[in-house]
Amino acid sequence: MHPNSAKSIPTGIVLEYDSGIIPPPYSHVFRLALDWSKGSLQVQLDLHYTDRDELSEQEILDEGFTTQDDYSYQGALNKVWIKPVQELISQTKWTNKPLTEGGIYAILDENGKSGVSKTPANQDEWQLMAQDLIQAIYESVKKELPLKVSYRLVDSSDQIDCSLTVHFADRQVIFEKNGKDRIIHWEYAIQLMKMIFTPDYHYELAKETPGSKRGAYIECGDGYWHELGKGVVNIDPSFDAVGKIKSGFEELIRD
Rank of each mutant, 00 (worst) to 15 (best):
G248N: 06
C162W: 07
V80C: 00
L192H: 11
I190N: 11
D124T: 10
Q86H: 01
S140H: 14
G64K: 04
G20N: 02
S90I: 04
D69S: 02
Y73L: 04
D109W: 08
V166N: 05
I196P: 09
S8C: 11
T67G: 00
G115L: 04
E125S: 15
D35M: 06
Y203I: 12
W36K: 07
Q135V: 00
A6C: 00
T165W: 06
H167E: 11
Y73H: 07
I253M: 14
S212H: 10
R182T: 07
Y224F: 14
L228G: 00
A206I: 05
N122M: 12
M1V: 09
F249W: 12
H185Y: 10
L45W: 12
L34H: 11
D200I: 12
F65K: 00
L192F: 07
E87N: 14
S156Q: 15
L99W: 07
W94T: 04
R182D: 02
Q159G: 01
T209S: 10
E227H: 04
G243M: 06
Q74H: 12
A33F: 08
L41K: 11
T95K: 09
N122C: 06
K38N: 13
R214Y: 03
F197C: 07
H167I: 02
Q44S: 14
S163C: 04
S140A: 15
I107D: 03
A241N: 12
F197A: 00
H28F: 09
M1I: 08
Y224E: 09
K7T: 13
D236N: 15
Y71A: 08
H167D: 13
S157H: 11
T66F: 05
G248R: 07
W186K: 09
D18Y: 09
W81T: 02
T11I: 01
W126S: 13
S163Q: 04
L153K: 15
V43N: 02
L15E: 11
D70A: 03
I183F: 08
V29A: 07
E176K: 14
L145T: 12
D132T: 10
D181I: 02
K180G: 04
S114L: 10
L32Q: 11
K180R: 13
E101F: 08
S140Q: 15
K246I: 15
R152Q: 11
I183C: 02
A241E: 06
Q44G: 12
D46F: 06
H185W: 10
A169K: 14
D155T: 07
F239K: 14
N234R: 02
K246D: 05
Q86M: 03
H167V: 03
D181T: 01
G115V: 09
I22M: 06
S19V: 06
C220G: 06
Y138I: 04
F168T: 06
S56D: 00
L15K: 09
E87M: 02
G223M: 04
I82C: 01
G112R: 08
E251A: 08
L55T: 15
T198Q: 11
L32T: 05
I174V: 15
A76Q: 14
L34R: 04
E227W: 03
V116M: 06
P210T: 10
D132E: 15
I174F: 02
D35C: 01
D161P: 00
L147S: 11
Y224S: 10
T11G: 15
I9L: 03
V154T: 13
V141G: 03
